[in-house]
Amino acid sequence: MKKKAKELISDLQDFYLLSYHGLMGVVRRPFYFKDLIEQMDYAGSGSFFIILLISLFIGMALSLQLSAELSRLGMKMYTGKIVGISIIREIGPVLTALVFAGRVGSGIASELGSMVLGHQVDTLRVFGVDPVKKLVTPRILSALIMLPVLTIIGDCVSLFGAYYIAVFVSHQSGTFFWSSIRDILIYENVLAGSIKPFIFGSLIACISCYMGLSTKGGAIGLRRTTTRAVVASFIAIIVADFILTRVLLYVLGFSV
């Protein structure tokens, strides 16, 4: 028990150190721009269509559920407002981050893990290249840039999906739906929805890089690494979402 606690503390310490050095690499030379572009391409354009598809259907499903329930209460006209707040403040950032962790996070962990097992990371060190700057920093930076971009795209597509259901299935007024959306696009809601992707992105990249670089034990170790990276990222996203929501509601003056 004591040994496990020691190992956990040591792992956490290593994780914080790697995250710190990885983030600090953004402002320290050398800069690996080519690696950053490659990572942004992998994280961004690779995830684009998945996010598009999932966001569209989530927006449509949410709109269907709310239209059905609100029409029973005679408040169908609030569909746009509730859907908008849910997507912009909560569902959009969390859903996009979960998809990003599943696709990009697992990819980072397995790629770095196989580089460790194939001695490629050791080779970098032999050549005097800092693996954190070369491998971790571009991945963190690409997650910090691409996750917010994907979240914005996902939010827009979700709202279009919700609009389609509200207007063509639930027979609501399209003009009223968009004016409801415009009404909720206030500073507080936009800020609450746009801070989260930065935090989620850095968490996913740091966790996945740490798991990848601490891979041991061949193919089974690689499988374990990938699974752990995805599971840990999912848990971190959900927990961070709750904490961020609580803090942001307080800071932005919402009463609960």
Partner: peptide, 24 residues
């Protein structure tokens, strides 16, 4: 430290098992 070891490492040429070429 890792930085100080750079001067030591350039004295050697290391070839790992299987070559360890960068896959990408």
């Amino acid at each position: 430290t890792e930085d100080e070891l750079r001067d030591i490492r350039i004295k050697f040429s290391m070839v790992f098992q299987d070559g360890a070429l960068f896959d990408s």
